[in-house]
């Protein structure tokens, strides 16, 4: 199928169909909207898009980056029509039917809302593309999860634009909070309640805010920023692997 974008009427039509799906979880997805000439426009330059299964957000991010590389990045980053159309195209991936029923979540999980900081990162496809565009290498912490979920680590990071504007931030996060042994985020880093030394939820954003008052964070590499963060964050780093001699 040729890649399209919804116009505003198309976005609204999809929104109504999402509401219908919530009422009737067994209803089929509104595939017919995808090529409706009055609700969509073909993207230029033309891009061929095929159905695909994504094992994770990382998988989706890589595919979307390749798929959209010919398009203007500013357009891709802000187009509600494009991402909403893609959400319908890949609806089986981001809202899979289980036992013939779909659990349709909030609209902003499918209808991209680039101007609302609380919502933009909750669009599963967009956030996968955005993270891998910003940081092609150190992204396991945010892109490990499956496409149908928005995990707390991603939410706590992406909702704070001042974090995502620091060039080395994803490498720093991965080095501080990725548990290689478990293949997932370290335990307790986004637990609500009392702040824990060096945690991601409470302490990391506060410490970055403090540092950016004094230091030019744009020019730091990950080693330097980790050093500036201080001892409370060093304890998050994995201990050296013991070897038998």
């Amino acid at each position: 199928m040729i890649l399209r974008e919804f116009n505003s009427a198309g976005v609204e039509a999809f929104r109504m169909r999402l509401a219908d799906c919530r009422e009737n979880p067994a209803a089929s997805a509104p595939w017919e909207l995808l090529e409706n000439e009055s609700l969509t426009n073909i993207i230029s330059p033309a891009v061929e898009v095929d159905a695909k299964h994504f094992a994770s957000k990382l998988d989706a991010g890589k595919h979307l980056k390749d798929l959209l590389f010919k398009l203007d990045e500013q357009f891709v980053a802000t187009s509600d029509g494009l991402w909403t159309w893609l959400a319908l195209f890949f609806f089986d991936e981001i809202c899979p039917a289980k036992g013939g029923h779909r659990h349709v979540k909030a609209d902003y999980r499918y209808i991209f809302d680039p101007n609302t900081p609380r919502h933009y990162y909750q669009h599963s496809l967009f956030v996968s593309w955005r993270v891998i565009t910003i940081e092609p290498n150190f992204n396991r912490l945010l892109l490990r999860a499956n496409l149908a979920t928005v995990d707390k680590v991603t939410a706590e990071t992406m909702k704070r634009l001042y974090l995502t504007r620091i060039p080395c931030i994803f490498e720093v996060l991965e080095r501080l909070y990725w548990d290689s042994a478990r293949g997932r985020a370290r335990k307790g880093i986004v637990t609500h309640g009392r702040a824990k030394p060096g945690d991601l939820l409470h302490r990391f954003p506060i410490r970055i805010r403090q540092l950016e008052m004094t230091y030019d964070l744009q020019s730091l590499n990950a080693d330097q920023l980790i050093e500036l963060l201080g001892n409370e964050f060093r304890q998050n780093r994995p201990a050296p692997v013991a070897t038998d001699n």
Partner: peptide
């Protein structure tokens, strides 16, 4: 101003001491 929306653009002016190990504002 590529890849950014000029209508929503804002700037910051920084003077940075880069003679030390960590650039200081």
């Amino acid at each position: 101003l590529t890849n950014l929306d000029p209508d929503r653009a804002f700037f910051a002016l920084k003077v940075v001491d880069q003679s030390k190990r960590f650039g200081q504002i």
